[in-house]
Design a protein around this nucleic acid. Structure first.
Lengths: 230, 230
DNA sequence: GACAATCAGATTGTCGACAATCTAACAAGG
DNA sequence: CCTTGTTAGATTGTCGACAATCTGATTGTC
């Protein structure tokens, strides 16, 4: 018997497509934090009735990137410096856990996939495609969570990822240009291939620190501005 | 001026009430794992149309206690031994993190609340109310996550809690009687009040180990039985 | 008897319309 | 001027009906 692999069939419901569309719009910063989603307007734009749209919104609310107030509306979540800090500190813990769980499960397929994703980041960097750069970098970091063979960890990571992607997208969007030219993931990948687990864990913490410091500074700046305006 | 505190107003939408009803039914084991939820039947029983019911179901799917297959139906999640093990090992990491974050924030209000929740567990134990015993025990353990002042951690813990509660309820339901008579949380509470953070973290890991070992054995038994039946 | 095509029933997905609620503007009264 | 009551418009929440899809039984064919 021939052994073939099939990829999952395409999403068949409108709801699923709407979820994908909305999520993309939010994570790329197309929809701004705090912005209200008008059901009638969106449903008309998408040529869809409000029922599947509302169901899609419920999903994204539970996913943590929308928030809903009964009879008032559904809004894109606000991004505070504290949110970023919270997500960041939890992320450190999860990364450490993921590396520990993944460590013994590493094999050639893991290393190949690691290289593949690393290459994707470098490609996006060469293309000066900031949105894709964020996306691929998060996918690179997600590999240890996918490989850790812990469904709950993976779910948690994916929830965190949504927000991180949103935060980074906003940041990039704000400072326009300025794409990091050099390869900041080189050491990370090398350590994951090596023999020193502790070193890999330590680097994950410190490396991520750098990315977030900048992000936090940006968010704090945003808040100072808005509180001044109110 | 008199300073009064008001609690948030009651949920006003049917959807929210449906979510609460369904969640309770699932977490108490009233709805069994794998069971299909028939929309028409449930909506008639609740005297509600399918729209808010479906929205409620979408929320619970994202919450991780229901799973949906397009055009096939929505089902209560299956509980495998691996799921429990995954949740358990992540829970250890989160507990450790929560204790670390909470440690410096402990004050008299924290200790009071700790005692209050501890007392609630003891009361439920005296009443031989197993369902409530599970609920209160999880609330006791949840305090460190609420106090840690990290919204993402709290969310993650709450998602985990849903499943844990379901698992424990199934377990309790299976073995009927046999409520632990002695107070297994005494040491936990004492250590959280003490000065040795490491000791508290260590105990959280080991103490939870005990609870889970039994649960895992039960789940493995279940799986052996079902695989034999197929 | 084995297998594919067809069909009926049940269930989920989607739609358009109506009901409940909120918001903001305006009027009335102190 | 400030507060309170009213009202119109817009928006969200809910409903009942229809369309799309799945499942299992039935039929026909080899």
């Amino acid at each position: 018997m021939v052994k073939t692999e099939f990829s999952p069939i395409a999403d068949t419901t409108r709801r699923a497509e709407i979820v994908a569309l909305l999520r993309r719009a939010i994570l790329t910063g197309q929809l701004e934090p705090g912005q209200k989603l008008n059901e009638l307007r969106i449903s008309e734009q998408m040529r869809v009735s409000r029922a599947p749209l509302r169901e899609a919104m419920r999903e994204l609310v539970q996913e943590g990137i929308l928030t809903s107030i009964p009879y008032a509306g559904t809004f894109v979540i606000d991004v505070t410096a504290k949110d970023i800090d919270d997500a960041y500190s939890l992320n450190k813990v999860l990364d450490e856990f993921a590396i520990e769980r993944t460590w013994k499960l590493r094999d050639q397929r893991f290393f190949d996939e690691l290289d593949r994703r690393h290459e994707a980041v470098k490609q996006a960097t060469r293309d000066r495609d900031t949105t894709r750069q964020i996306e691929t970098a998060l996918q690179l970091h997600g590999l240890i969570h996918e490989w850790a063979d812990n469904s709950v960890l993976l779910e948690t990571w994916q929830r965190l990822t949504s927000r991180l992607q949103m935060y980074f997208a906003l940041h990039q969007q704000a400072r326009k240009e300025a794409v990091p030219a050099e390869d900041v993931h080189e050491t990370y990948v090398r350590l994951l291939k090596g023999d020193d687990m502790r070193a890999a864990q330590r680097h994950a913490r410190e490396h991520i620190d750098l990315d977030f410091e900048e992000l936090l500074a940006y968010a704090r700046g945003l808040e100072a501005r808005t509180s001044k305006g109110s």
